[in-house]
Design a protein around this nucleic acid. Sequence first.
DNA 1: GGATTTGCTGGACAATCTGCTCAGCGGAAC
DNA 2: GTTCCGCTGAGCAGATTGTCCAGCAAATCC
Lengths: 159, 159
Amino acid sequence: MAIDHLDGRIIVLLAREPRIGVLEMSRRLGVARGTVQARLDRLQSDGVIHGFGPQVDPAALGYPVTAFATLQIRQGQGPDVRAHLSTVPEVLELHTTTGNGDMLCRLVARSNADLQRVIDRVVGFDGIVRASTAIVMENPVPLRVIPLVEQAAEERGQG
Amino acid sequence: MAIDHLDGRIIVLLAREPRIGVLEMSRRLGVARGTVQARLDRLQSDGVIHGFGPQVDPAALGYPVTAFATLQIRQGQGPDVRAHLSTVPEVLELHTTTGNGDMLCRLVARSNADLQRVIDRVVGFDGIVRASTAIVMENPVPLRVIPLVEQAAEERGQG
DNA sequence: GGATTTGCTGGACAATCTGCTCAGCGGAAC
DNA sequence: GTTCCGCTGAGCAGATTGTCCAGCAAATCC
């Protein structure tokens, strides 16, 4: 449930050079290959590392527009709305939240015009009372975890 | 800038079984190894695939609480705020948006109580006028791109 | 205090995969 | 009709992987 310094270095190294192998990692980190392998296995079985799936850029796929939609759901319609939204490819993620809205979802679209189509499809469902959309202009900090990993590793001490 | 059916199958296969090799992929897809290799190279140089970095779960790292904060920025303070937020490890991503707020950021914290500390650190900066936070309760649809990839591949025809 | 468990090291092995090259071939573009 | 491009199927040397092992040191337990 927590990682030590060596775990942190493994993750950071892996993040920087994903194509690197276990052997090369062990050389860079100055530890035995078996150690790196064991750490990696543990990190994965502990769930710290979900996997190594390809990181796809929606923009390069033809969906350069990103938006966040806050949805208000009619009481009791939550499950239905989730099922509905999970069928929309342009819905990249969905959260239920506290606060003003009941749900927050990330959308992508082919263009600002196309975004209208996506939103229509998203809110074209009975259980959704209201939706307010914020279009993303810039992304100064793309999704990252490395700083968090480093912080978690520092707090733990060396390993 | 767009992918065909074979590209889509490669990405989906890679997403399902990241540890798979080029050779095994070529067997599964029924094409030559060189073809898969060439497609992968193209996908990466085209930017469709950013990389294969490890997907780290903040919760397993000890940060089980996720929240989204909408920030209102004082005119002209945008760049400073970005620089400030990029130094906070718990800020996993940051977007500038249209709509009610000026920025939207994703935060994680060790607990609901710890979230207060994170928020204080985030908003403890001159350029930020107001912040409204939505704590994530559930995540019915975790970040995904596969459905989008499949849609993009379908529209393109076979390859 | 002594025994046990745990994690790391350094090494070994066969099997496999990678990176690279090649010639041939078909379809599409010019 | 000719050229260009992408895919095929093959081969090769080199490197990596998965999997063992025994030794060793530190921490834990009795």
